[in-house]
Amino acid sequence: MLGINTQALFGQLLLGLINGSFYALLSLGLAVIFGMLNIINFAHGALFMMGAFCAYFLLTWFDLNYWWALVLAPLIIGGFGIVLQHTLLRRIAGLDHLYSLLLTFGLALIIQGVFLNYYGSSGLPYAIPAALQGGTNLGFMFLPNYRAWVVVVSLAVCLATWFLIERTRFGSYLRAATENPQLVSAFGINVPLMITLTYGLGVGLAALAGVLAAPINQVRPLMGADFIIVVFAVVVIGGMGSILGSIVTGFALGIIEGLTKYFYPEASNTVVFLLMVLVLLVKPTGLTGKAT
């Protein structure tokens, strides 16, 4: 059919959709954290990796399977994030952006370095849970069940986060505190607590993405290091002003990357960065962003 191998094309599209799920989850977390704390969390990739390792530890040390990890890892790593925020990040609130970026970059180096020392740079296998093994033949392509699961879960979690922030009372406090923290705390709302919880939420999303990625990408200390740079480009393209914007941009760029892998594989690593340049030239504030 026009020289297009549909099987391969849909395969790459699916792979793109999977990566897009991770981009969406990670850039969503970055956007939520940026909105509330006004920092860019460079440690996001390292925390994503910790989510995957957490799933691995739960399985090998405590015999707790994937389903447990899906719930526990975001809570544990989110809790770790809360500790980081409370002990370190809190101290530089109000300083220039520069310092939060450097502090979280330092944290990322520490976390990745420690894991590299104990686990090397090669990957640890993490099996796909029994219930999600195998696949479904859709006629035009073979769809591995686990990959379909990842896309569905990511989409559901993204929409739930959107709902939490845009449609609930907690979310309205959060948005209000983003706009004017003094005023909101004058109404008797504990803003520092909300800041801490928000950071925990963002980190939890990264950890969840890590657990989802564990059976696909293997568990590696550097699995988040290069990933986070792409996510930064996604954030630049989408702009951090809108929750829905980061979700849509994340998925869309994943799909574009997948298509590039099929039509012009040489550019698959760079296409997101090239799009970033293009967007900056045409609309410097990002697709959904307001002027900053």
């Binding site: 860019i40 952006h97 480009a233 954030v235 900056l280």
Partner: peptide
């Protein structure tokens, strides 16, 4: 020419992206 279009935190992310490119 590309990176100067954004300020602050975005500038850092853009230069990082260009370097990765």
């Amino acid at each position: 020419l590309v990176a100067i279009r954004r300020q602050g935190i975005y500038f850092a992310m853009i230069t990082l992206g260009l370097a990765q490119l």
